[in-house]
Nucleic acid binder design. Structure first.
Lengths: 112, 112
DNA sequence: TCAACATATGAACACATATTCATATGTTGA
DNA sequence: TCAACATATGAATATGTGTTCATATGTTGA
């Protein structure tokens, strides 16, 4: 899959590509993206995410684990519950940019 | 996978989420992301992409087809070759934002 | 029209992964 | 410590998908 590395030292840019792809892949699942969208505005508990999105707490937890490991979200315990929120607001910027991309008039109903 | 729609009319926001996720998923594969990165600066032919990335023309073509269908890239024929470039520059903005996200100092080497 | 090149397409396979279910861990109040 | 709640984890499975190979389509120059 990865092109063979003829050079001894791997390029930093190559690492960046893999890291970038990892983040995009995480945002590439609709369920996970919905979870992210629930967290970017204000901290929200696992149970509330599950209820609002009509998902099992187990599934939400699985996704949250990936998002936390990738530094997209962070979790903070408050009593029994754990509230998740965006680690920083770059994710929100990325989503906004992509929204703009979708909103492009030439995007909709154009045929090859 | 998708939460059941109790309402008759599906929400536009829900469509947007699916569209967003589709785009992110496309950028979530390292090979495809590398192909995108080769196209965002200047138009480049399929063969040149394949050569520079050390991939088979067939594989590059498969990915280009997806990226073109998703309106990430566009193809323009010049003689025998077809040159691909970014449809607009929102993709570049998205990548830049994500780069910044990766560059965050608290992203690297922080432990739970 | 033919050969040579450039790109696209379809099938098949191997691998990744989203989801579910059962169970475990952790926290609070009594 | 115990019960009740909240979240996390592991295994199993079904589905999705990236890649390869063979082949097809399209273009140019002779």
């Amino acid at each position: 899959m990865k092109p063979q590395t003829n050079t001894v030292v791997r390029l930093d840019a190559e690492d960046a590509v893999v890291q970038l792809a990892d983040l995009f892949r995480l945002m590439g699942d609709p369920t996970r993206l919905r979870i992210i969208l629930r967290c970017v505005n204000e901290p929200i508990s696992v149970g509330d995410i599950a209820e609002q999105l009509m998902l099992s707490p187990s599934l939400v937890s699985h996704h949250l684990r990936l998002l936390k490991a990738a530094r997209v979200l962070r979790g903070e315990r408050r009593g029994k519950q754990i509230f998740y929120s965006a680690l920083d607001d770059h994710i929100r910027c990325v989503i906004d940019d992509m929204m703009t991309h979708i909103g492009e008039p030439n995007y909709i109903e154009e045929v090859d």
